[in-house]
């Protein structure tokens, strides 16, 4: 394990390279998922409001 972490003496270069790559991919994933969720939620809110409004207008019009 210590050998693995030591990376043949290149630990100082190999691990930051992998660490930064991981952080970047995690950051893109986080931002993308948050954007997707928020957009879906905003749309659902509108559709819900429209649906409710649609129901409430039905009765008087008839």
């Amino acid at each position: 394990m210590a050998d693995f972490l030591n990376m043949g003496g290149f630990a100082l270069y190999v691990w930051p390279a992998y660490g930064l790559s991981l952080v970047s991919i995690a950051a893109i994933t986080f931002v993308t998922l948050r954007f997707r969720r928020r957009a879906a939620r905003d749309l659902a809110e509108r559709q819900m409001a429209a649906k409710q409004a649609g129901r409430s207008t039905d009765a008087p019009q008839i």
Partner: peptide, 17 residues
């Protein structure tokens, strides 16, 4: 590919909103 498709799916929702 995943990130682009997901962002663009969200974009379609944003435009609908």
């Amino acid at each position: 590919a995943w990130a682009m498709l997901t962002a663009l799916l969200a974009e379609v929702d944003v435009r609908r909103v």
